[in-house]
């Protein structure tokens, strides 16, 4: 999994470098390493948005049920440790591994970018990248917690893996379709009424999209990595009037995505809490 991510990062890095070489140098070139894609390959941030969940799922889907199938769970539970230590350890160990994974990838892309392009980051850019990596880590932790939940609920590892993968596919690929369709159904934009519905339509679609952690992550990642993104969601012209046309500072960007971060942390914690409760109430027997 790590090798796959490394490969993906290298590919995206190559794409970004080749694109950026042609571009004239400007401000925030370093950050563009993470977000720029060439015509044939995704950017690093997009790759993480797709593959981060997979890494989380890979580490968590067999956490509990594999122990059960091997017959080691009751042996483990018979040792003088609290039962929740087992599931806590499963989560913390995998989360730590993901932390290391994310950090390594981030440093690798930054380092290679510096070497290949000769750009040097400012303090603010380093902070932005750090925030992005933390965001990625939380995002992966959510998928990890979700897959641990399924590993507690499902007896077979294959069932657990397939269930989480199904959820991942749905939220990543189809949620936007569902959100768009549902918003159009609730607030049709055709006809006379359409004009008054447009705002509501867009807001409904956005709200539905934001159910998906994938959308939350992408939105937040774009905001934190791109200082010129000034708002998430819709802004009216009246709101824009009088605004100074400049990039946001790190603090302001962070403020903008703070709700996203909080929601993702909450999602991860909720998923883990469910797994925890189910596990604690479950029978320990082979």
């Amino acid at each position: 999994m790590f090798a796959l991510l490394l490969l993906a990062s290298t590919a995206s890095l190559a794409g970004a470098v080749s694109t950026l070489r042609e571009a004239e140098s400007g401000e925030g070139l370093f950050l563009e390493l993470f977000t720029t894609s060439s015509s044939y390959i995704y950017s690093f941030a997009t790759f993480l948005a797709f593959l981060g969940p997979l890494a989380g799922i890979a580490l968590g889907f067999d956490a509990i049920n594999n122990e059960r199938n091997m017959g080691t769970l009751n042996r483990l539970a018979a040792q003088p440790i609290y039962r929740d230590s087992i599931i806590n350890a499963k989560f913390l160990a995998a989360a730590a591994a993901e932390g290391v994974m994310v950090l390594t990838l981030g440093l690798y892309v930054s380092g290679m970018g510096i070497l290949l392009l000769g750009v040097h980051p400012t303090v603010e850019e380093v902070l932005r990248v750090a925030a992005f990596l933390v965001l990625t880590w939380v995002y992966m932790a959510f998928w990890l917690a979700l897959s641990i939940l399924f590993s507690v609920v499902c007896r077979h590892t294959a069932t657990a893996a397939l269930s989480v993968l199904a959820i991942w596919l749905f939220l990543t690929l189809f949620m936007s379709l569902v959100a768009g369709g549902l918003a159009n159904f609730l607030f049709p934009t055709e006809g006379i009424q359409g004009f008054s519905n447009m705002m509501a339509n867009y807001e409904a679609e956005l709200a539905l999209n934001r159910i998906s952690p994938y959308y939350l992550f992408v939105e937040a990642a774009v905001t934190i990595l791109n200082p010129s993104v000034r708002a998430v969601g819709i802004i009216t012209t009246s709101q824009l009037s009088g605004a100074i046309d400049s990039s946001l500072t790190f603090g302001q960007s962070l403020l903008l995505i703070w709700p996203h971060l909080v929601v993702m942390v909450a999602l991860a914690m909720a998923a883990f809490a469910c797994a925890y409760v189910v596990f604690m109430r479950q029978e320990i027997r082979a």
Partner: peptide, 19 residues
């Protein structure tokens, strides 16, 4: 349970080990 598990050994049927 912790005090009990400290001095009670349990050999489950079909005991498993990390392969």
């Amino acid at each position: 349970a912790l005090a009990v598990k400290q001095m009670v050994g349990y050999l489950p049927d079909n005991v498993g080990f990390y392969p």
